[in-house]
Simulated assay, not measured.
Amino acid sequence: MTLTQDALASEVGAWGGSFVALALLFFAFTSIIANYYYAETNIFYLWHSRTSIFCYRALYIAFILFGAWVANSGSADNFALLWNMADMSMGFMATANLLAIILLSGVAFKVMGDYEAQRARGISEPVFDARQYDIEGIEHDVWDGDAR
Rank of each mutant, 00 (worst) to 15 (best):
residue 28 A to Q: 05
residue 116 E to C: 13
residue 99 L to Q: 02
residue 89 S to T: 09
residue 142 V to Y: 15
residue 96 A to R: 02
residue 14 A to V: 10
residue 106 G to N: 09
residue 42 N to P: 01
residue 104 L to W: 02
residue 122 G to H: 05
residue 9 A to M: 07
residue 30 T to R: 12
residue 70 V to W: 01
residue 113 G to S: 14
residue 83 W to K: 06
residue 124 S to T: 11
residue 43 I to Y: 08
residue 141 D to C: 00
residue 113 G to K: 12
residue 142 V to W: 14
residue 65 L to Y: 04
residue 95 T to E: 03
residue 100 A to W: 10
residue 67 G to I: 07
residue 17 G to W: 05
residue 128 F to K: 10
residue 87 D to N: 11
residue 35 N to A: 09
residue 96 A to G: 06
residue 73 S to C: 01
residue 24 L to N: 08
residue 98 L to E: 00
residue 112 M to P: 00
residue 54 F to C: 07
residue 30 T to M: 14
residue 123 I to V: 15
residue 118 Q to Y: 05
residue 49 S to Q: 06
residue 144 D to M: 12
residue 84 N to K: 11
residue 27 F to G: 03
residue 138 I to Q: 09
residue 141 D to T: 00
residue 36 Y to C: 13
residue 93 M to E: 07
residue 132 Q to A: 14
residue 22 L to S: 06
residue 22 L to P: 00
residue 107 V to L: 05
residue 103 L to G: 00
residue 141 D to Q: 00
residue 35 N to I: 10
residue 26 F to C: 12
residue 23 A to E: 04
residue 18 S to M: 09
residue 104 L to C: 03
residue 81 L to S: 01
residue 87 D to A: 05
residue 26 F to Q: 04
residue 53 I to R: 15
residue 63 F to C: 07
residue 120 A to I: 07
residue 122 G to F: 05
residue 39 A to T: 14
residue 84 N to C: 05
residue 143 W to C: 00
residue 143 W to V: 01
residue 77 D to W: 03
residue 16 G to E: 09
residue 13 G to F: 07
residue 148 R to K: 09
residue 89 S to Y: 08
residue 124 S to V: 15
residue 48 H to S: 11
residue 11 E to R: 11
residue 81 L to R: 08
residue 82 L to S: 09
residue 73 S to L: 03
residue 80 A to G: 03
residue 10 S to E: 07
residue 133 Y to D: 14
residue 47 W to E: 13
residue 84 N to W: 06
residue 61 I to F: 11
residue 58 A to W: 12
residue 68 A to V: 13
residue 44 F to S: 14
residue 64 I to G: 06
residue 25 L to A: 15
residue 138 I to Y: 11
residue 21 A to V: 11
residue 93 M to Q: 10
residue 66 F to T: 08
residue 91 G to E: 04
residue 74 G to E: 00
residue 60 Y to F: 15
residue 70 V to C: 00
residue 63 F to G: 06
residue 118 Q to F: 09
residue 146 D to V: 09
residue 137 G to D: 03
residue 47 W to D: 13
residue 81 L to E: 01
residue 25 L to D: 09
residue 89 S to E: 10
residue 4 T to C: 01
residue 98 L to T: 02
residue 110 K to N: 14
residue 80 A to R: 11
residue 67 G to N: 12
residue 128 F to D: 13
residue 92 F to R: 02
residue 147 A to F: 07
residue 138 I to P: 05
residue 81 L to C: 02
residue 128 F to R: 09
